[in-house]
């Protein structure tokens, strides 16, 4: 698990991370979103005990990053921003080298390396120099290195960047599998669809500060407001006969349908459908309006930029 309070890092006069507090439990995935230079990598480096916090504290896998750096690094698997592979080594040599760093037994090291290379489709090229690999293959090998010691906590910076869709799917499946085996995972990504698919908690960071954090639904409700629905009808209807359930707000009305907003769709929407049916309106479809993480992200960023400009 990962726990931080007021985690902050200052470089000179610049606060790269300013007061980030997180609680990520085993089996949860946190997606850290933000522009380049927002402080995501610095946060990950503090969680890996590579950088010491200027203020606040962090505990990773039960270890204080300030006091037990070595234990933290043993418990964490990191996929760094740059894959950082040794180009003159072969993939099996590379994984063997890192396996020894983590003091894995030769048997476990070999089995695990073979399994990972097999899973990521690298088994056939395991004896080739890494310098000959494609960008995607290098990324997969770097990910295999992060998973090699079967860590309790995974910190992944852009895990599927430079990968073809098939490989990216493979990686996402692996992340989902790790989540189900109670690993704590942090993903720094610009791929919002990936974050939407994988993350339990999403956090948006801007200029070192945590702008917003919560589940996808919480973020949508908080940023975009109550969900909107669109009702399509087969023909003109008598709007006077329509009684909107309590808590529902009509947004627009057309001859062939209408749009509304509702705080509790789970109770209000069935009532609306009954009302429409009883008033003999011929309903073609009732559909939730598009509310993506991208909308949330863009709105949050726009608002924070506006606040800063206003200030």
């Amino acid at each position: 698990m990962i726990e931080t309070r007021d985690l902050s890092k200052q470089f000179g006069d610049f606060w790269a991370v300013d007061g980030i507090s997180l609680d990520i439990k085993p089996g949860q995935i946190l997606a850290l979103l933000g522009q380049n230079g927002a402080g995501k990598t610095t946060t990950v480096r503090m969680l890996t005990a590579l950088l010491s916090p200027t203020r606040g504290w962090a505990r990773v896998a039960g270890y204080d990053v300030m006091k037990h750096g070595r234990a933290v690094r043993s418990a964490v698997g990191v996929l760094t921003e740059q894959h950082g592979l040794y180009m003159r080594m072969t993939a099996d040599e590379y994984l063997n080298f890192f396996g020894q760093m983590y003091r894995l037994s030769p048997e476990f090291r070999n089995t695990r390396s073979l399994d990972l290379m097999d899973y990521f489709g690298l088994a056939e090229v395991a004896h080739r120099r890494i310098g000959e690999y494609s960008k995607g293959m290098r990324q997969k090998l770097a990910l295999a290195r992060a998973l090699l010691h079967d860590p309790a906590v995974l910190l992944l910076d852009e895990p599927t960047s430079a990968m073809d869709p098939e490989s990216a799917r493979l990686v996402r499946n692996e992340i989902a599998r790790l989540k189900s085996s109670k690993r704590t995972i942090v993903i720094c990504t610009h791929n919002l669809a990936e974050a939407e698919e994988l993350a339990d908690i999403i956090a948006v960071v801007y200029r070192g500060r945590l702008l917003i954090m919560g589940t996808l639904e919480e973020l949508k409700n908080k940023v975009l407001g109550a969900p909107e629905y669109e009702v399509k009808l087969s023909g003109p209807w008598d709007a006077g006969q329509l009684r909107l359930p309590e808590g529902m707000e009509l947004l627009s009305r057309k001859p062939e349908g209408f749009r509304f907003k509702v705080n509790h769709p789970e109770t209000a929407n069935p009532q609306l459908i009954s009302s429409l049916v009883s008033s003999a309106a011929s309903v073609v479809s009732i559909q939730e309006g598009p509310r993506s993480l991208e909308q949330v992200y863009l709105k949050v960023m726009a608002e924070s930029r506006g606040e800063i400009h206003a200030a």
């Binding site: 590579l50 070595r70 964490v76 921003e81 740059q82 894959h83 950082g84 290195r145």
Partner: peptide, 14 residues
């Protein structure tokens, strides 16, 4: 410069 130092620093090496 080659970006290989960070994975090395992330290991339990002192």
């Amino acid at each position: 410069e080659r970006g290989t130092i960070e994975p090395l620093l992330c290991t339990p090496l002192e």
